[in-house]
Amino acid sequence: MHIQAEGTAIKPVRLFRINTGSCNGCDVELAVTSAVTEFDVEQLNCRYTESAHEADIVLVTGPLTVRAREEVLRLYAETPREKVTVAVGVCPVSGGVFRGSYAVDGPLERYLPVDVNIPGCPPRPQALLAGIREALEIRHARHEGGEPKRAPGDRKQSDTDNFPARGRLSFDAGACVDCRMCRHVCAAGAIRFEEGENGVRLTLWHNSCVFCGLCSYYCPTGALSVTGDWRLDHPAAHTFRQVERGEVPYAPCAGCGEPIIPAAPQLLHDAFRRPNPDIERLKSLCPACRQQMSIGVPRR
């Protein structure tokens, strides 16, 4: 027992970083986890290495640019076979705000298998540590030949702390008036509206969201809000399930019977202390006009 304990103490887990063309936000925060005591990866018995051959865990940042691909794949090929790969920030997972550029070749998953995602833009150091811990569990489980200890997909509680970091967005369908301003302002294409049989459905994908909060800022009714929940690390198998969604049900229009999205007046008044003429107007408009009212200028 004694020897074993000493053994793990001497041989730390090696972290190796690959930057595939990031804005450097994730990289600067990773630097913090090697420089600032409170966030030092040493507390997880990890250490950064400059050699790909030594990598136990590979941390990948950035949206994978066309220009960087060759070098990224070369480095990755040098890492040992049994490493665990972590996508840091939303860039490698979905391209984040850079998705759709001629110069971006991601998502990373097209080229190499990812084990853990750490959403964030950039994730705070606490989230990085949580994600690395998750990677360690996977690594441990693989060595033992079993499953990771934590049942996959269970909702982790964020540590309570004093800082209200901008975390996961939350959607209250009851307050939504379907003006779609949120989708209009979202740089990351993280919000989708789908018209269904019974209502309009909003889906917000946390692996595309960059947590800027602009949707919430421009939302006229407060249907979208920024929460402090920053613990979003998850196994890559759950990449596409990291969503916030809600359905705004149709009701027949009092006038013509056409199914419309009603605007619950009580809720609107709850959200705004004083009745707001803009909100009152939104209520009486059909969705096309609401879009026009919020967005204003014609789209090109």
Binding site: T65, A68, V104
Partner: peptide, 13 residues
């Protein structure tokens, strides 16, 4: 060029 993300093109879209 490694971090060229075509941003000046993206902003026009």
């Amino acid at each position: 060029g490694q971090v060229h993300r075509g941003m000046e093109h993206l902003v026009m879209r």
